[in-house]
C-alpha cells in the first residue's frame, strides 16, 4: 500500500527508503490480528452456518449461529477500532457464550460429543488468547492512577498572572479577529 501510494505524491517529495520502529506495540498488533480473525469467523458464521452446525450435530440452530456471526463481526470492528479494549473484552464475553452453547449441546453417549469437545478445546484456546490480549491492551494504554503532577508552577507568565491580565489590550492586538 505504501508503495502504491507513492504514485499519488509529487515526484520530488521524499520517498520511503527503509521502515523503522513504530507506534504499534505487540498488544496492538495482537488486537489487530484478533479483529481480522473475528471478521473472518463472523462472515463464515453469517453466510455458511451449515458448515459449522453439521460437524457439531447442531442442525436446526443455523439462526443462532448467524446471530453469533453478527456478534463476531461487531466485536471484530470494535477490535480494529481505537476502542479495541472494548472490542477484545466483548470477544471474551462472546467466547463464554460460545462455550456455554457448546457445553449445552453435549448429550450422554452422543457421537457428536467428540467434535463438540474438540470445538470446546479450540474455543478455550482462543479465550485464553483473547484474555491475554485484552489484559495486555488494557495495561498498555492505561493511565495509571495515583498522585498527579499539578503543574501549579506553570503559569506561562514570567512576570506573573496579575501583570499579564489585560496586558495585550493596549498593544492593538485585540482587533482584526
Amino acid at each position: 500500500m505504501t508503495f502504491l501510494s507513492q504514485f499519488a505524491r509529487s515526484e520530488r517529495d521524499p520517498r520511503l527508503l527503509k521502515s523503522g520502529s513504530g507506534s504499534l506495540g505487540l498488544p496492538d498488533r495482537l488486537a489487530k490480528g484478533l479483529g481480522w480473525f473475528s471478521l473472518a469467523l463472523g462472515a463464515a458464521e453469517l453466510f455458511a452456518p451449515g458448515r459449522i452446525t453439521r460437524p457439531l450435530g447442531l442442525q436446526g440452530k443455523e439462526t443462532i449461529v448467524r446471530a453469533y456471526g453478527m456478534r463476531e463481526i461487531a466485536s471484530g470492528l470494535l477490535s480494529l477500532s481505537i476502542d479495541k479494549k472494548a472490542g477484545l473484552w466483548s470477544r471474551v464475553a462472546g467466547d463464554v457464550v460460545d462455550l456455554v452453547t457448546l457445553f449445552n449441546a453435549m448429550r450422554p453417549g452422543a457421537r457428536r460429543n467428540e467434535n463438540l469437545t474438540v470445538a470446546m478445546v479450540v474455543v478455550l484456546g482462543v479465550t485464553l488468547l483473547d484474555l491475554l490480549s485484552s489484559t495486555a491492551v488494557t495495561v498498555a494504554h492505561r493511565r495509571p492512577a495515583g498522585s498527579f503532577k499539578r503543574y501549579a508552577d506553570r503559569s506561562g507568565y514570567p512576570q506573573g498572572v496579575e501583570d499579564a491580565r489585560g496586558a495585550a489590550r493596549g498593544r492593538g492586538m485585540a482587533g482584526a479577529g
Partner: peptide
C-alpha cells in the same frame, strides 16, 4: 502507515 501506526522511517531528502 495507517491507524495508530506511525514509524520512524528512513526517507529520501527533500529538494
Amino acid at each position: 502507515h495507517g491507524k495508530e501506526d506511525i514509524r520512524c522511517d528512513e526517507v529520501s531528502d527533500p529538494e
